[in-house]
């Protein structure tokens, strides 16, 4: 049901019955390694291209979420997925493997929550009972697509971010117990005129702030109503800016309740510059780390705000600025059920 200007409230409780997370070697060396289902030590996954490796980790994340729930791929009614490669081929090829009715999404790094919001909408409206929502990114394919060859020796500035190699999938069901989605806020495009693709944090921070503000306004809530508000991939630079912007807009931002997936996924001594980024970043941190913490009872209500920079290599070369977006989904766990 629509509430306020741009938020949906899911009164029928779409449940996240299981999740699957698969990551690459760099993430496996990070502080959240124990929260992920599968860790790969090889960027290639024995495939002959990075694009195929990306498809493979997405397939594995989907398989993992299905096997955890004790379901088969035939049980998926709708599959919602997206990534950053041209024409989102890794998602479409994974959908070929799953042979489930498929909706391909592109929301850049906000795809994880875009898929979860739409999946929840399908369940809540009764148009489906089992929906698989996924997002994937691979460091080498994204670097190739948006920046320079991976082995190119260009010096990156400290505001740059490291694209996460990882895939996260969440299986939504109308039946279940435990963690469910309660609401979602669909973001609008915010463009503050930043045009440097090595400074995504600054570009995306205002979009995150806009969506958080809209969510709080539409639902009449504040930071006090959530145990954690976590943004997708702002990194250290963007996180600081977003926090200061929220304070400027008159919010009190408790440090222990506001975090970022891009900061959590890598430790400070890993050479990831400002932090992690990519579709897979918010997907694996949310579906791995956050879900685990909720199950342990450390967190009860979480708002995940996945941020995306909707640029293309072409728009960047033509000196266009970077339009950004953020989608928020709130998760809640009911221990009594």
């Amino acid at each position: 049901m629509l509430q306020g200007h741009q938020s949906w409230v899911f009164s029928n409780r779409p449940h996240i019955i299981s999740t699957g997370t698969v990551v690459g070697p760099f993430e496996a060396n990070g502080p959240l390694a124990l929260d992920f289902d599968l860790l790969h030590e090889d960027m290639w996954l024995e495939q002959d291209s990075f694009e195929k490796a990306e498809r493979r980790i997405l397939e594995q994340a989907c398989q993992k979420s299905l096997s955890k729930a004790g379901l088969r791929k035939e049980d998926i009614q709708f599959f919602l997925s997206g990534d950053l490669v041209n024409q989102i081929t890794p998602s479409s090829f994974a959908a070929r493997t799953l042979s489930a009715p498929y909706i391909g999404l592109f929301g850049a790094c906000s795809t994880s929550m875009e898929a979860l919001a739409l999946g929840s909408l399908i369940i809540d409206s009764g148009f489906g009972h089992t929906v698989l929502c996924a997002a994937v990114s691979h460091n080498a394919t994204v670097e190739k697509q948006f920046r320079y060859p991976t082995e190119y020796g260009g010096q990156k500035p400290p505001t740059a971010q490291w694209t996460v190699t990882g895939a996260g999938a969440a299986l939504l069901s109308s039946q279940g117990t435990g963690i469910h989605t309660t609401s979602a806020t669909i973001g609008r495009i915010i463009d503050m005129g930043i045009s440097d693709p090595f400074n995504m944090g600054s570009a995306m921070a205002p979009a995150a702030v806009d969506t958080i503000t809209a969510h709080f306004r539409d639902l009449g809530v504040s930071f006090q109503d959530y145990d954690l508000v976590i943004t997708g991939d702002l990194g250290r630079v963007g996180h600081t800016i977003a926090r200061d912007l929220l304070i400027k807009h008159g919010f009190s931002v408790p440090d222990d309740r506001f975090s970022d997936c891009g900061i959590l996924i890598f430790s400070e001594n890993q050479p990831a510059f400002s932090g992690g980024s990519g579709c897979g970043c918010s997907a694996v941190v949310t579906y791995g780390h956050i879900i685990n913490r909720m199950k342990k009872g450390e967190l009860n209500r979480v708002l995940v705000v996945a941020t995306g920079a909707l640029l293309s290599p072409l728009s960047y070369q033509q000196k266009d600025t970077i339009p950004c977006i953020a989608h928020a989904v709130s998760l809640e766990i009911n221990h009594q059920e």
Partner: peptide, 24 residues
Amino acid sequence: QKKKTLTPVQQEYQSFAQSREPKR
């Protein structure tokens, strides 16, 4: 030249963000 095409809000944000970005 780039700055001229930006709105005052965008310009204000950019200096806000720049003061929080680590420099090379």
